[in-house]
Design a protein around this nucleic acid. Sequence first.
DNA 1: TCTATTGGTTGGAGCGCTCTAATGCTGTAG
DNA 2: CTACAGCATTAGAGCGCTCCAACCAATAGA
Lengths: 334, 334
Amino acid sequence: MARPTMEDVARVANVSRALVSLVMRGSPKVSAQRRTAVLEAAEKLGYSPHVMARALASRTSTVLGVMLSDLHNPFFAEVAEGLDAAARAEGFELIINSGGRSPARERRALNSLLSFRPAGLALLGPVVPSSAIESAAEESPIVLVSRSSRLSTVDTVNDDGEAGSRMAVDHLVSLGHRRIAHLDGGGGSQSALRRRGYQIAMREHGLEPEVIRSEYTDAAGAKAIKEMLAARNTVPAPTAIVAANDYNAVGAISALEEAGLRVPQDVSVIGYDNTSLASMRHVSLTTIDQPRTEMGRLAAEALLQRVREDRTEPVRKLLHPKLVTRSTTCSPLS
Amino acid sequence: MARPTMEDVARVANVSRALVSLVMRGSPKVSAQRRTAVLEAAEKLGYSPHVMARALASRTSTVLGVMLSDLHNPFFAEVAEGLDAAARAEGFELIINSGGRSPARERRALNSLLSFRPAGLALLGPVVPSSAIESAAEESPIVLVSRSSRLSTVDTVNDDGEAGSRMAVDHLVSLGHRRIAHLDGGGGSQSALRRRGYQIAMREHGLEPEVIRSEYTDAAGAKAIKEMLAARNTVPAPTAIVAANDYNAVGAISALEEAGLRVPQDVSVIGYDNTSLASMRHVSLTTIDQPRTEMGRLAAEALLQRVREDRTEPVRKLLHPKLVTRSTTCSPLS
DNA sequence: TCTATTGGTTGGAGCGCTCTAATGCTGTAG
DNA sequence: CTACAGCATTAGAGCGCTCCAACCAATAGA
């Protein structure tokens, strides 16, 4: 288990440790002859540099910390993949961590990442209070994904949730729907924006918004629909639903079908995120797509700019969502 | 961004750096008075120890590397959570990494993790050739989850895929099914075992096994079913399907429904893994549950035993799956 | 011929920490 | 009053690396 060190390589290659270091970092000021000698020795010994020692000595880290608020949510997984690709291309390593949707666990995860003294930190959909983000920002550059912030020390990458919701409404209106309800995302990070977009679009079309409180889960979506249907006598049921996100939409669809309503013939449903879930044949959900990989790439870019000190003012990236039409929306019957 | 060091804390607390080190590591041989002085100074400065420096100096790492073969698969996410909880309880940090289901990317991910000189490595469903695992095992203790190995240097944690498949068959037979087909997982890690369990169980019940080649994805499941139905004239269609995993099952269900067959009335379908997907109301899939969190915990335990050198012989954990009955299985109609 | 210059190479200090051995300081026994 | 524990504390070396300044040819310019 004892791995060879630079010293070992130097001895075998008959050069100094400093020269090995230069070769390992790909310095141009090494003769071809020595370079191959070093590389051969390294190869022979199975040497690879010790990242931690390197970080310590160089006082610069090549580690980017990533905290996913939820390891289960495929949305974050895909943002992480975009981040990973971009970071790797620039020679950075990713260390990932999960906060389990709980502020307390997130805070611990955050500290754990910080203890690695990363070059930067990407927080995907964090739910910690912004004071925690602020204090973390004193120790490392930070980029937030799917969460906005007024802090001048952090960058943000978000999709335009307001525009996304408007697209959803526009789509339904163009199909002929008039009674369109919105299941909102409760305290979830982007829910206020999505709700606002929905409300604005409805009013623009001269329609009355109807917001139903919900959460970013399928159980909450089902519950909200059930309660809505129970009140059907007093309030006429909508012919279309703009759900908080894909998970919520799937729950809503289940509840609608259990109540004997067909989707989309009786009620159209539109989700948000375009997670892998939505594209599954069995689900085939019309939804609003966020450019997840691109968001990851932009997050990496923002971080790397700060690391290189190309920039100190905060950057606010706002990406454009787009409508993906599948099988859960159609014109209302009547 | 310059964080305080132990030296800074020592200066403020009017003690030596070594004493601060002792306090930070919770040593009992420090007077209460000095301890509080140090802790106060640390608090005041916002000090927290530098994990990398610590690892370097102590020649022991508190980092466990985790490679998920696929960040999107909720199965691995949950194993990772189990690992995380167990590791954290013992004072270890997790660094996670993804291999994106490609051997080449996995190999890189593996090297990246190794370059942190972790205390141990957990590989969840890896697809790299076992030679890569063998050489990694020379540098760090390794535990494999959802992959078996004959290497005496690595531990493994698996569910009993053979038993799981048998449960699936037994369940269907007890409902009265006789024509039960299996969609297999192709080259996926546990697919051979699941296939074998299916075949053995079928023969035990005096039934003829019918294996249809597929993959661990919903698209593959749908494709396999379509091809099967196209051949219906020659081969009578089965009344029940044992799918390779949940994703595969969901694809299969879509294809069946598109062909006008009802699930479960016309065809029962049973998945494998009991991922969050299966429990979604809209899906409500009968499936075989693997104790994912427990698997993560056992993986962490295996690693930590090796780290502490409590053990050098390999350990092979085999967990018992169990049947979860939901809405996609019932007795055949006739 | 004697400096400059350049390009390759190296020793040594030091990153923030741990760990061993040594130190000072009680308090108790001889 | 000396001796010796026993405990709390500390100096100093060293983990594997980077980086700076110094060094040493070998070549070029005067």
